[in-house]
């Protein structure tokens, strides 16, 4: 049983892509505590994204259990996992996080439209104000009405973080979101992100191959240390 401080528990997890014979991922055990800022590193092709997608509930492990907030994702239906993700998680991609034909504000609001419970997490306060405050913190308040295509890569990534953190989710999954940024922006970006995640009590799992930012996290792990595929 997971203790109350534990957010994620993976047990005997294994994932094999269809059409392949050997698993990409095999994790005997892996735990993440609430409020952690976890850095997972490893070269590309070691299953970082696969692990994130399993945590997000997009991929269903071939074997094992994925317990988040005390609930086993493996036992949920596809639709339940989608709803769970919408309610409890934010996700930031390496790049192209935004839907090009929606405005910045519309992009940020997306999860609220897809999940009523995510919207309920905002409380009774005015959504517009929450978004303004959030974007103010991220330094993108003046971009809200802009078209996505007018934004720089750094601005786009910050919009993605705003979207992922809107409604104070329990878990933020980030798949190398800083790889397209230069070193200077990278640190600034991470600091802003942590500031908010700490404020919201959101646990962060961040995967990357770039260990230069490792020191900013509360815990750092090599993926190879948990993924026991031979």
């Amino acid at each position: 049983m997971s203790s109350s401080s534990e957010l994620i528990t993976l047990r005997d997890l294994s994932y094999t892509y269809s059409g392949q014979t050997s698993p990409t991922l095999h994790v005997p055990e892996f735990r993440v505590n609430k409020g952690e800022e976890l850095f997972l590193y490893g070269p590309s092709g070691t299953g970082k994204t696969t692990l994130l997608e399993i945590l997000a509930g997009v991929l269903r492990p071939t074997r094992g259990s994925v317990e988040i907030l005390g609930r086993d994702l493996v036992k949920m239906s596809d639709a339940e996992r989608d709803a769970f993700r919408a309610e409890h998680m934010g996700y930031v991609f390496q790049s192209f996080n935004l839907i090009p034909y929606l405005s910045v504000q519309e992009n940020i609001e997306l999860p609220l439209h897809l999940s009523a419970s995510r919207k309920a997490r905002l409380g009774t306060v005015d959504t517009e104000m929450v978004i303004r405050a959030l974007c103010g913190n991220l330094g993108i308040a003046d971009l809200l009405e802009k078209k996505v295509t007018e934004l720089s890569v750094g601005q786009q990534q910050r919009v993605a973080v705003a979207r992922a953190l809107l409604g104070k989710p329990d878990l933020l999954l980030a798949d190398e979101p800083t790889s397209a940024l230069d070193a200077d922006h990278r640190e600034k970006f991470l600091k802003l992100m942590f500031e908010l995640s700490e404020l919201y009590g959101t646990t962060v799992i961040f995967v990357s191959h770039d260990r230069s930012i490792e020191k900013l996290f509360s815990r750092s792990l090599s993926l190879e240390s948990i993924n026991k595929v031979v």
């Binding site: 997009v58 919408a86 991609f93």
Partner: peptide, 16 residues
């Protein structure tokens, strides 16, 4: 496809 992945990430069901 990118657009679909974004929608999935923010919680859209594949049926949606």
């Amino acid at each position: 496809r990118r657009e679909m992945a974004i929608l999935r990430a923010v919680g859209a069901k594949s049926t949606q």
